[in-house]
Computed example of a mutant assay.
Amino acid sequence: MHHEPDEELLPIGAFAARARLSPKALRLYDRLGLLKPAHVDAASGYRFYRVGQIEAARTVALLRRLDMPLAGIADVVRLGGTRAAEELDAYWAGVEERFAEQRTLARYLRGRLSGRNTELYATFEVKTVDVPERHVISETRHVRAEELPAWIGGSAERLEKAAADECGGIPDSPCPHYVIYHAEVTEESDGPAESCVPVADAEAARAWAQRQGRGSEVKVRVEPAHRLAYTRITKAQVSYPQIIAAFDAVESWIAEQGLTVTGPCREVYFVDWSTTGPDDEVCDVAFPVARRD
C-alpha cells in the first residue's frame, strides 16, 4: 500500500497503544474492512499504521459500542466531518425509535403478565366522534404485520395524490387517511386491510378508478355516516404488537359503556408520519360503534 515517505508509520503494537485499543481489535477491524493498515510488510505480514489513523481507530471502537452495523461504521469513517455526523444522527434516531417501541411493548407485556391490564387500559383516554357520510377511494391488499408500515405509507401517498389531482381534492374531514382491518393482520395472518382517503368529487373519482383498468386494487365507495370510539396513540405505540394494547383498551371501554361494535377496527392517521418522533401523537385507534337496542 502506498504511503508518503515522510509519514510516520507505527507497528501494530505501538499504534494499538496510542489508539487505546488491542492489536486483536485492530486485526478484527482490518478483517471487517473498517480500518485497513497503511502498509503490510510482504515478507512478515506485519501491519503498520499512520499516526493520522489514530482518530479513525478510536471512532470505530466507539461506534461499535453503539452497536452500529458494520456498513454504517464504514460509511462514517469514509465520509468524515459533517456528513459522518449526519449519518450518526440518522442511525441514532432509529435506535431511539426502536427503544421507544420496545419500552411500550415491555409495559404492555408487564400488564398482561401481572394480570393488571385494567390499569394499563386506564392510561388510554377513549372518546367518540361522529363521522359524516363520504365518498372514499381505497386500496385493498393482503399484507402481514412486517409488510404493513411500508404499504400504509405507500398507499396513503398514492391515494392522496390521486384525490388531489384526479378526484377534486380531499374534503374537510376528521379522517384524512385511515386503514380498515377486515381481518387480523399479524405475522401469521394477512388481513386484508383497506387504505382509504375521502374525496370531494365522487364522479371524478369513479372515472379515475375506471382508468386504473381491470385487476386494479383501487375502488370508489360510499362510507356511511358512523360514530367512532377511539384513542389517540404515539408513533412508538403504532408498531405491532404494541398497538394491540390500544385496540384492547378501546374494546374494553366500549363494553363498559354498553356499546356495540358495528364494523371492523381501523387506524386513522392525521399527521405527516415523516415529520414526527416516537413520542408524537400520530394515529387514532378506532372502532365504529352504536348503542345496543
Rank of each mutant, 00 (worst) to 15 (best):
T118A: 14
R50K: 13
P171I: 00
Q53V: 00
E223C: 14
G94C: 06
E147M: 02
G115E: 05
E251I: 11
G72N: 04
P149L: 02
A42L: 03
A122L: 05
T118E: 14
D89W: 12
E87C: 11
I233P: 08
D279F: 04
V250T: 04
V60C: 05
A25R: 02
Q53F: 01
E139V: 09
C265P: 15
C265F: 13
L9R: 11
A90C: 08
V131Y: 01
D6Y: 11
V271I: 10
E119V: 03
T128R: 09
L113G: 05
A156S: 14
G94D: 14
Q53S: 04
V129M: 03
A290H: 07
A229T: 06
A245K: 11
E133F: 12
C283S: 11
T82N: 07
I137Q: 02
A38F: 00
S189P: 00
A205I: 00
L63R: 00
I254F: 13
Y121E: 02
E157I: 05
F99T: 13
A236M: 13
Q212T: 03
T260H: 15
K24N: 12
L34E: 06
P132K: 12
R232M: 07
P264R: 14
I254H: 06
L228M: 15
G277E: 14
R83I: 02
S239E: 15
A85Q: 10
E55R: 05
F99C: 10
T104W: 13
V222S: 15
L9F: 03
A193K: 00
A163W: 04
W208Q: 00
R144Y: 00
R103F: 10
E160Q: 12
D248M: 13
K161I: 02
P278C: 04
L26R: 09
R107T: 07
V40H: 04
T82H: 07
G277D: 15
R47K: 14
R50A: 05
A14E: 12
S22W: 00
R206D: 04
E87F: 11
E97R: 14
N117Y: 06
V238S: 14
L113W: 02
A204M: 07
Q102A: 15
P11Y: 00
D41T: 03
N117P: 03
D293K: 08
S239D: 15
S252I: 08
A246M: 11
V179H: 02
L88V: 13
A290E: 05
R78C: 00
R50W: 03
A209G: 06
P288D: 05
W151V: 07
L159A: 05
Q242E: 14
A74T: 08
E125R: 07
R116D: 06
M68C: 06
R20Q: 12
L35S: 05
